[in-house]
């Protein structure tokens, strides 16, 4: 096997997976290139690394990481509820409800999360006299992510073919039964990969909650930087902490996608 054949994929149209050696060697090479680039950039900084001082605050990282996971989990549940309700409202017979759903989705998707956090925290939560910032944080993330989930579910619902709706009618299914037994199961299945991806986004996006002083992973890392007078050290554990959750989720998303491809 020549060097060239290790690193080159077979001709286009050949769907066969490259050999194990090929895959590992190519992955290693790509990772090596990226590491060199990063290493070169940091070397050019001529920065005095001080890992010891950051390492002492290990507990703070772990605590923040768990807080982020907790916020993400609770937000995800509510985001799914909000998204499902919004997707259903988008099909409502009563048109104002339908437009309410459209407005919600467009406004949230069209504005930066940062702006939403400020508005919600300093205006809406203040007016409603909500004191608990964690509660506010979860609410913001649920509303933000819910808009994206609403769109994902809407696409899933619309993806169910017209012929199946006709068939459901011919069988005598009521509107509710058609939704319950025909549309919903298929829409959920086809939405799964995108929903998993959105979960990864939710976890990353929750880092912005640090600006309203929620002690999640990112805020804690920033605090460690401040306490130890260091600039970069805590960003590494931060990145790795997020990757530890998002990589498996994105992987899962792909696996589901593949599986669905085979099924249909």
């Amino acid at each position: 096997m020549s060097i060239k054949s290790i690193f080159y994929h077979a001709a286009e149209g050949d769907d066969a997976l490259p050999s194990r050696l090929s895959r590992y060697a190519s992955f290693f090479l790509a990772a090596l290139l990226l590491s060199l680039l990063l290493y070169g950039s940091f070397a050019a900084l001529q920065y005095q690394w001080n890992w010891q001082s950051v390492l002492r605050y290990k507990a703070k990282f772990i605590e923040g990481w768990f807080t982020t996971l907790k916020i993400a989990c609770v937000s995800l549940i509510f985001a799914f509820l909000v998204g499902a309700i919004s997707a259903l409202c988008g099909r409502a017979r009563f048109l104002p409800v339908r437009y309410l759903s459209t407005l919600y989705v467009e406004l949230i998707r069209g504005t930066p999360l940062l702006v939403q956090i400020f508005l919600f925290y300093y205006v809406i939560a203040d007016a409603a006299n909500i004191q608990n910032r964690y509660f506010v944080g979860v609410a913001i993330m649920a509303i933000f992510s819910g808009a994206y989930i609403s769109e994902i579910l809407r696409a899933g619902i619309e993806g169910v073919g017209k012929s199946q709706l006709l068939s459901a009618k011919a069988i005598g299914f009521s509107e509710y039964q058609t939704f319950r037994y025909v549309i919903a199961p298929q829409a959920l299945r086809s939405s799964l990969p995108a929903l998993a991806g959105q979960t990864a986004n939710l976890i990353k996006d929750s880092s912005l909650l640090s600006i309203i002083a929620i002690s999640e992973f990112t805020l804690n890392a920033q605090e460690v930087n401040a306490i130890t007078y260091s600039s970069f050290e805590s960003f590494f554990p931060l990145a790795i902490g997020y990757l530890a959750v998002t990589l498996p989720i994105m992987r899962l998303s792909r696996v589901i996608e593949k599986k669905l491809q085979f099924d249909t």
Partner: peptide
Amino acid sequence: RNAHLKNVGVVFQSYNLFPH
């Protein structure tokens, strides 16, 4: 029509079985 539909069966050209 809906009452009538429950008392008849329909078979389509493209089968229209539920794929899931």
